[in-house]
Amino acid sequence: MFRPTYPIRTARLALRPVALDDLDDVHAYQSRPDVTRWMLDAGPRTRAQALASVTAMAGEDALRAEGDCLALAVVADARVIGTVELVWRSAADRTAELGYVLHPDHHGRGLATEAATALLDWGFGEFGLHRAYARCHARNEASARLMARLGMRQEARHVESYLFRGEWADRLVFAILAREWRERQPPQG
Rank of each mutant, 00 (worst) to 15 (best):
D77L: 09
W168E: 13
W38G: 00
R109T: 13
A52T: 12
L163Y: 03
R12T: 01
D25C: 14
L120F: 00
H27F: 05
D25T: 08
A169P: 02
A144V: 15
Y162G: 13
E180A: 01
E126C: 10
T55K: 11
A144Q: 15
P4W: 05
G166A: 02
M152G: 04
Q30W: 15
S143V: 14
Q49V: 03
F174K: 06
G123L: 07
R179P: 02
A169N: 02
V173N: 08
E141L: 11
E183Q: 09
H27K: 10
R3V: 03
T36E: 06
P4E: 03
F124E: 01
G82C: 05
T55P: 11
L119K: 07
L163E: 04
V87K: 07
S31K: 13
L40A: 07
A118L: 07
M39E: 13
A48E: 12
H130G: 13
V80Y: 13
W168Q: 05
Q49H: 01
V80W: 04
D105W: 11
R79A: 10
V84T: 02
L98D: 06
L163F: 10
E180W: 07
G123P: 12
L15N: 09
D34N: 15
P186M: 07
E114G: 07
M57G: 07
R9W: 09
L119N: 01
E160D: 10
G125W: 00
Y29E: 03
A50Q: 00
D170A: 03
V173I: 09
A28M: 09
L163R: 09
A48R: 05
R179S: 09
V54H: 05
E126S: 11
L72S: 07
D61E: 08
A28D: 11
N140H: 14
N140L: 06
L163P: 00
A14L: 04
A56P: 05
E141Y: 11
F174P: 00
R182A: 15
H107A: 14
R153G: 13
Y133T: 03
F2E: 14
L163H: 05
G125T: 06
A71Y: 08
M39Y: 08
F2I: 13
A91P: 04
E167Y: 01
A19F: 05
L119F: 08
D68C: 12
M1I: 14
L102P: 02
L40I: 04
L172E: 06
G108S: 09
A148W: 12
D41G: 11
A138H: 10
P186S: 04
L177K: 10
